[in-house]
Design a binder for these strands. Structure first.
Length: 218
DNA sequence: GACCAGGCACATC
DNA sequence: GATGTGCATGGT
């Protein structure tokens, strides 16, 4: 079977799909909110919720959103699904931001990456993927975002076991690629694109640019 | 009508 | 530590 390195796979995906222009979002705050809303949810549904939030002015700033009741917030994000739990998660983030950073994303953005990651992971409702998405796409920190597609696609192609944990998978990518924000940004987006289009639970491998490849670190 | 989606926390063993 | 379950809308 033909072998391909992680770098090589990236080149194949990029030439097949082209740039993905991630993260879709006008502001840093919108990216953070989107990262929480998209948990186990199709992006199209998140967009509807974001439209509602914009209409209500809730994306103007964390301070504005914080003034909403959790019930009102839940109503606005209803199209994104899991709306009660996600309203609480948004509130948990806003409470954290208020408590530690005076509700200022500018202040938050000044924190060192390791500290930022630890603190975000302490927020109930922000797990590793949401955290790293925020760090990469809202704060421009070079962390590789691992999602269900990453595990599914790359375990199928023999890079690691399908039971591999988040940190292990992330390490494989971060240890074998140049730690560039632009590369990590585009690579994750391309994986999602491939996953959505061709590599779901019933893969349509015919048109897949990775067809028949054994993927290796280097 | 079933299946899936850019997860996470919590209960239980 | 591993495994199972609730959370919920909307598109295919």
């Amino acid at each position: 079977m033909k072998r391909a390195s992680l770098k090589n796979v990236y080149a194949k995906l990029f030439s097949h799909f082209g740039p993905q222009h991630w993260w879709p979002g006008d502001t840093r705050f919108e990216v953070i909110v989107g990262a929480i809303l998209t948990q186990n949810t199709a992006w199209a549904n998140v967009e509807k919720a974001i439209v509602n939030l914009k209409k209500a002015g809730a994306l103007k700033s964390p301070a504005v959103m914080k003034r909403l009741t959790t019930g009102k917030l839940a109503g606005l994000i209803r199209p994104a699904g899991y709306y009660n739990i996600k309203a609480k998660r948004l509130r948990n983030f806003l409470d954290f931001l208020g408590r530690r950073y005076s509700l200022s994303l500018i202040e938050l953005s000044r924190a060192e990456t390791g500290r930022l990651r630890r603190e975000l992971l302490e927020v109930n409702g922000i797990g590793p993927e949401t955290c790293d998405s925020i760090l990469l796409y809202a704060f421009g920190r070079p962390l590789f975002v691992v999602d269900a597609y990453t595990k599914r696609i790359f375990s199928r192609h023999g890079l690691f076991e399908k039971e591999a944990g988040y940190a292990d998978v992330q390490k494989v990518f971060m240890d074998n690629l140049r730690r560039k924000i632009g590369l990590f940004n585009e690579y994750h987006a391309l994986i999602v694109r491939l996953g959505k289009e061709l590599c779901r639970k019933e893969p349509r491998c015919g048109a897949c640019p990775l067809k028949g490849l054994k993927i290796t670190c280097k």
